[in-house]
C-alpha cells in the first residue's frame, strides 16, 4: 500500500471520529459535573437539522455550525431546567430529550430533505498541505476536525489546570460538600450541561455540513449513544476520548470498505458492527477493571437540592 493510500485511510478515520470526539467531550464535561445527559442523540440530530437549515438559508457554513451548537444549547437548557432546576430524574429526562430532539429535527428538516450543498471547505496551506504522505492529513482537514482536537486539549487543560475545572470536578464527586463550601453547585452543573449541548449540536452540524453533506431524518444513527459509551470507555478522560473515537472511526471505515468489497457477509451484519463493538468495548473495559472500583464521578446521575 502506498503512502498516499495510508494517508487517505487515516483521513477518513479522522473524519468519522470527529463527531464522536466533539459530542463525547461535551458529555464528558457534563458528567464530570455529575450530570448524566442521555439526550446526546437528540441534541445531535437537532443540531444537524438546524445547522443544515441555517447554512442553506444563509449560505454560510460558519453560521450553520453556530446554529447547530445553538440548537444543542436550547435543548440542553430544557434538560438543565428539568434535572438541575427541578431535580427531575436524569435518565428519564435524557430519554425525553432524545425523543423531543428527533421530533423537532424532523419538523425543522422537513423542507430540506434531498437538498445538497458543498461540504465545509478544507484547510489549504500552500506547500504544507501538498506534502506527500502527511500533508492532507495534518494540514488539509476541515475546520471541525481542528476544533475537535483543540477542544480535547482545551477541556483537558480546563479540567486539570484551572481552578474552575477543579470546582467542576469536585461538584461532580460531592455536591453536598461543595455546597457546604459555598460553591454554586447548581449554577456550575447548569453551565456544564449547556456546554455539553453546544458540543453535541456542533457534532450534529458536522454530520450535515461536512461529513455527508446533506440532511436526512435521524441521520445521526445512534452516534450520540456511541459518544455516551465513549465517555465511559474513556473513563472520563479527554485524551482517551480521542483515542477511543479514533478506534470507532476506524471500525466505521473498515465496515464501509468491507461493504464495498462485498466479502459475502450480509450488509446488515456489517452495519451492526459499530453497535456490537460498543458493547464489546464496554465488556472488555469492565473485565479489565474488576479490582479498583469505578472511575466514574462519584455523584454521577444523582440530583441535588440545596436545603435551607
Amino acid at each position: 500500500m502506498s503512502l498516499d493510500t495510508v494517508q487517505m485511510v487515516l483521513v477518513t478515520v479522522l473524519t468519522a471520529a470527529t463527531p464522536l470526539i466533539i459530542a463525547a467531550l461535551g458529555e464528558l464535561v457534563a458528567e464530570r459535573a455529575g450530570v448524566l445527559n442521555l439526550g446526546v442523540e437528540g441534541m445531535m440530530v437537532f443540531g444537524a437539522a438546524l445547522g443544515f437549515a441555517a447554512a442553506m438559508e444563509t449560505g454560510s457554513t460558519l453560521l450553520g455550525a453556530l446554529a447547530g451548537a445553538g440548537a444543542g444549547i436550547g435543548l440542553a437548557a430544557v434538560f438543565g431546567l428539568l434535572t438541575v432546576g427541578l431535580a427531575a430524574n436524569q435518565v428519564a429526562s435524557g430519554l425525553a430529550l432524545t425523543i423531543l430532539g428527533l421530533g423537532l429535527s424532523g419538523l425543522v428538516g422537513a423542507g430540506y430533505v434531498g437538498l445538497k450543498r458543498e461540504p465545509a471547505p478544507l484547510l489549504h496551506v500552500p506547500g504544507l498541505s501538498d506534502l506527500p504522505g502527511v500533508g492532507r492529513l495534518l494540514f488539509g482537514e476541515d475546520a471541525f476536525v481542528y476544533v475537535g482536537l483543540g477542544l480535547a486539549v482545551g477541556v483537558s487543560w480546563f479540567l486539570w489546570r484551572t481552578r474552575a475545572g477543579l470546582i467542576l470536578r469536585a461538584i461532580g464527586d460531592d455536591p453536598v460538600a461543595t455546597h457546604a463550601l459555598g460553591l454554586p453547585v447548581r449554577g456550575v452543573r447548569f453551565l456544564a450541561v449547556l456546554f455539553g449541548g453546544a458540543c453535541a449540536g456542533l457534532a450534529g452540524s458536522y454530520l450535515s455540513l461536512a461529513y455527508t453533506p446533506f440532511w436526512a431524518p435521524a441521520m445521526t444513527a445512534g452516534r450520540g449513544w456511541i459518544a455516551l459509551a465513549l465517555v465511559v470507555f474513556a473513563s472520563w478522560r479527554p485524551a482517551r476520548v480521542v483515542a477511543g473515537a479514533t478506534l470507532f472511526g476506524g471500525a466505521t471505515v473498515l465496515q464501509l470498505h468491507a461493504q464495498a468489497a462485498s466479502l459475502g457477509l450480509p450488509g446488515q451484519l456489517l452495519s451492526a458492527l459499530p453497535y456490537l463493538a460498543t458493547i464489546l468495548a464496554l465488556v472488555l473495559l469492565s473485565l479489565g477493571r474488576r479490582q479498583g472500583g469505578s472511575l466514574a464521578p462519584a455523584a454521577l446521575g444523582r440530583d441535588f437540592t440545596p436545603h435551607r
Binding site: A88, L95, I99, G101, L104, G106, A110
Partner: peptide, 20 residues
C-alpha cells in the same frame, strides 16, 4: 407533519417529569 406528534410526545414527557 408526523414529526409534530413525535415532538409533542417528547415535550409531554419533559413536562410530566418536570411536573413530578
Amino acid at each position: 407533519p408526523l414529526d409534530l406528534t413525535r415532538a409533542f410526545q417528547g415535550l409531554l414527557l419533559c413536562l410530566v417529569l418536570g411536573a413530578d
